[in-house]
Amino acid sequence: MDVGELSLEALKTGDRAEFARMVDAYSNQVYRVALKILGDEQDAEDVLQDTFLKALQSLSAFEGRSSISTWLYRIAVNEALMLLRRQKPEIQVVPDEQADEDDFTLVQFVDWCCLPESELLSTEAQVYLEQAVRDLPEKLRLVFILRDMEGLSIHETSEALGLSETAVKTRLLRARLKLREQLSTYYGERLGKEKV
């Protein structure tokens, strides 16, 4: 999609055709990230609509310091989190278990890299991969989704989440380590079944 041509000026003056082009350029990414955070299509659709409504309302205040893409990611993440808080208000009081603490211990040293792609990406494996991300503490999950699944840079992730780059890196490392452990457990079992 050719998004380089979007005119921020036209958007800010309320050009509806330009806004429609922006919606078409970014609705896929907004829907995708909402779906990853929420895991439910109806919720993702609600967040998609709320994100562009919010964007429409706050365009005049948008200064263009970050890209439109990053700005929309930021709105989408906030909308998704608000939806989560409404659904499960208790989450707010329960702090993420030591998401920033530096006491990680490696336990899994199984080399499962040699498993065939058909095994690594079987339907069952993909369900497991999704669940493993969903099980991450929220702070780690958001960083991992934006950086490693959506492919944002560390800098873009920090802008989208309103975090320092150092915090993004710390959380990213923890997320990757945790997921690596999870996947090692899962694929390690498959490895045992493979005949060599």
């Binding site: 609705s27 896929n28 829907y31 995708r32 990853k36 998609l48 490696l106 899994q108 040293f109 199984v110 080399d111 499962w112 890299c113 690594l120 990406l121 993909q126 991969l129 991300v133 991992f144 490693d148 699944m149 959506e150 492919g151 990757r176 380590l177 997921l179 690596r180 996947l183 090692s184």
Partner: peptide, 22 residues
């Protein structure tokens, strides 16, 4: 092994992260 499996972990998530249309 930790390095290799971490790389693979990231690769798997990246490759299964859909770029599909809504």
């Amino acid at each position: 092994i930790v390095v290799d499996t971490m790389k693979k972990t990231i690769y798997l998530y990246h490759s299964t992260s859909s770029n599909g249309e809504i």
